[in-house]
Every structure is written in C-alpha cells, then in structure tokens.
C-alpha cells in the first residue's frame, strides 16, 4: 500500500471515527480566512478581552504580549498583539483562532477550535476545544479592535 493510499484511509477513519466531532459547529474556509461567524452572530469585544488576558482560559499571554498595562509577565514566544486588527481581516483572525495549524503546520500557537487528531489529551479535556464557538467570536471581535 502506498503512503498516499494509507493517508486516504486514515483521513476517512478520522472523519468517520470521532463521534464527538459533531459537537463542533461546521465552518467554511475561504483562502486564509473563515469569513462567516461560527455562531452566526458577532462576538463581544469586552468579553473577548477578558478571555485573552485570562491565563488559564485564553492562555494567550503565556506566549504573546499586548496592550494590557495591568498584566505583568507577558510572554515573548510570539508577536505582540498590537495592530493585529490592522494586519488581518476578521475572517483571517477567525481562521488563526480556529485552526492556526492550517496557516503554519509547525506553529506553537494552539488551534482553539479543533478536537480531531490530538494525541494523549488529559481526560478532563478530551473531546473539548480550547474555546467554545462563542468565546472564539468574542476573541475575534476583540482582536479586530487592536488597530494602530
């Protein structure tokens, strides 16, 4: 069997096998963007900010820094978030949040709305994305306000 044929079988089994995949809302990728809101509604930027600065929920400030003067010890494994809303469209920010691995297969940034293909996930987190669709939309709405 060729590697390519094996891949086909694998993909089919991943798509069919993971029962909980249904829990994620479907979304459509266009180019480098997910143009339409996952929930069909716009997110809440203020709630998005609290998610981004929450180190056990958003985790963002472990790696990133940004315009959060009240937050000590921001990370430097990733670019500063300032200006993200100027550099990227809302749809691009949404794809970055949903599945950063699609943009850069080697990235360290977690894919926040992905449950398939993960390995050795601790029981408490199995079958759950890092953020819910509502939370993703809130974060995207907040990132879009970061303009300079």
């Amino acid at each position: 069997m060729t590697a390519r044929a094996a891949m086909g079988v694998l993909l089919a089994s991943l798509a069919g096998g993971a029962g909980y995949a249904d829990e994620l809302l479907p979304y459509r990728i266009e180019g480098n963007a997910v143009p339409v809101s996952l929930t069909g509604k716009p997110g809440d930027a203020a709630r998005g900010r609290t998610i981004v600065t929450n180190r056990t929920l958003g985790l963002c400030l472990l790696c990133h820094s940004g315009p959060f003067p009240e937050e000590r010890f921001q990370g430097n494994l990733a670019p500063d978030m300032r200006g993200a809303g100027t550099r990227w469209s809302t749809g691009e920010l949404r794809l970055r949040m949903v599945d950063s691995h699609r943009l850069n297969p080697d990235t360290i940034m977690p894919a926040y709305y992905m449950i398939d293909g993960l390995n050795l996930v601790a029981p408490a987190f199995r079958g759950k994305p890092l953020l819910t669709a509502e939370q993703i939309e809130d974060v995207v709405a907040f990132l879009a306000t970061l303009r300079d």
Binding site: C63, F73, Q74, G75, A122, F125, L130
Partner: peptide, 20 residues
C-alpha cells in the same frame, strides 16, 4: 495534549524565551 505542543517546541526551539 489539548494544547498540541511537543516538548521540543519549547525546549529545543524556544529556550531562553519567557513563557509568561
């Protein structure tokens, strides 16, 4: 893990940086 990182991505690729 849920975060989907390898040990190497921190300890080989990003040592010396601040994780918060």
């Amino acid at each position: 893990g849920q975060i989907s990182l390898s040990c190497a991505q921190c300890h080989d690729d990003n040592w010396g940086k601040q994780l918060a």
